[in-house]
Computed example of a mutant assay.
Amino acid sequence: MSNYIEYNGKIAFHPGYYVKEIVEESGLTQEDFAKRLDTTPKNLSLLIRGEQNLSIDIAMKLSRMIGTTVSYWLNLQNAYDAFIAEFRSEKELEQEKETFKSLDYKYFRENFGLPDLPRKIDEQIIAVREFLKVATLSVFKKRDMAVSFRSASNEISNGNIIKANAMVQIAINKALTMDAPKYNKVKFKQAADYALSLTKEHEEFYPLIKNAFLEAGVIFVILPNLPGSKINGATKKLEKNVMLMVNDRRLNADTFWFTLFHEIGHILHGDYGISFEKETGGKEEIADAFAADSLIDPEAYKKFVKEKVFTLTTIQKFADLIDRDPGIVLGRLQNDGLVRYDDRALQSLRHQYKVKVSS
């Protein structure tokens, strides 16, 4: 390692550079100089080569030995450290630009009020970094940065990972601003049961569910979808609370409620992490079964399916019987291959919820 560095037409010298000059001018060997300085030859050698920072102890000994001030030496070290920090910051910014390619500044500007900075990539990166409250956007390349990735699939790209981590980071930051009691599993089960009674409330259900979950220590966040994240939802155990996040791309009755109860299932089983599209595995199957059985009583569904009559009237009648939005029943039938997705006669049963997305 060199005892000086050149960058952007500037040069900065490590304190060891000046110590080396003093040693050479003294006519002493490094070993003899080290003895007079009351340190080891190894420490002096590391300092001279720029491989070890100047300590307060050595600064004090140098000041006594050659008649300078302690601050003189400490200022040299501070100036060198500041230059190195600037150098590393610029290098990190170049690396961040690669990560930033997977994010969409428009998403942050339109949904979270970040400033309009056309073609100012460096400033956009700084704005997003500060909004997400991270030292570098590069941390989002790590699979388990924000929460555990339940999926081990190789189909999840680096771009998916970056976007998913960014979305979860937003949700976590929002959750940390909320005042909620300690997570209570019993109360959360009750809140989940209450949520099931709201599936036909197409506009007012979100604040009602949000408040019910909050009382149980679960902070429910709906975020605008970041295109390409391939994320369905996520959960994270905080210090005393639980964060539950879904995005707004699945606000049809069937997909929204299934995603929500899939994540509720994960929480109740003590399993926290990110759920991606088309995931498989034991934990996902358990969460899927929990969601399916919570939304539609399995015995009632079995009897209904046995009739093999799936019309607008029969589906609506069954939905009324179990007190669920008919879109939930339609979605289940389509998922089970009993009704075609392109059956236009049944599309009026599918409801698109209107939710004011958390911002």
Rank of each mutant, 00 (worst) to 15 (best):
S2N: 15
Y4L: 06
I5F: 09
E6G: 05
G9T: 10
F13N: 09
P15Q: 07
I22S: 04
E25V: 11
D32Y: 15
A34L: 12
D38W: 14
K42P: 03
L46T: 08
N53Y: 01
S55F: 03
I56G: 11
I58Y: 01
A59N: 02
S63G: 08
S63I: 13
L74E: 08
L74G: 06
N75E: 12
Q77P: 04
A82W: 12
A85H: 05
E86D: 12
E90P: 02
F112N: 00
F112C: 01
F112G: 01
L114W: 04
P115E: 13
R119S: 13
R119E: 11
D122S: 14
V134W: 05
D144Q: 08
M145E: 15
A146I: 05
F149G: 05
S151E: 04
S151W: 04
A152T: 06
N160R: 02
I170R: 00
N173G: 06
A175N: 00
K182C: 06
Y183H: 00
K185C: 03
V186E: 14
F188Y: 08
D193H: 11
A195M: 04
A195L: 06
Y206L: 03
Y206P: 00
F213T: 01
I219M: 12
I222R: 12
L223H: 11
N225A: 14
P227E: 14
K237M: 09
E239L: 09
E239P: 07
N247H: 11
N252H: 15
W257N: 06
T259L: 01
I267K: 02
I274Y: 09
F276I: 07
G281N: 09
K283S: 10
A300F: 15
K303T: 15
K303S: 12
K308G: 05
K308S: 10
V309H: 11
T314L: 04
A319Y: 08
D320I: 03
L321W: 14
I322A: 08
D323Q: 12
D323C: 06
Q334Y: 04
Q334D: 10
N335Q: 10
D336F: 07
A345I: 09
S348V: 15
H351Q: 15
Q352C: 06
Y353F: 10
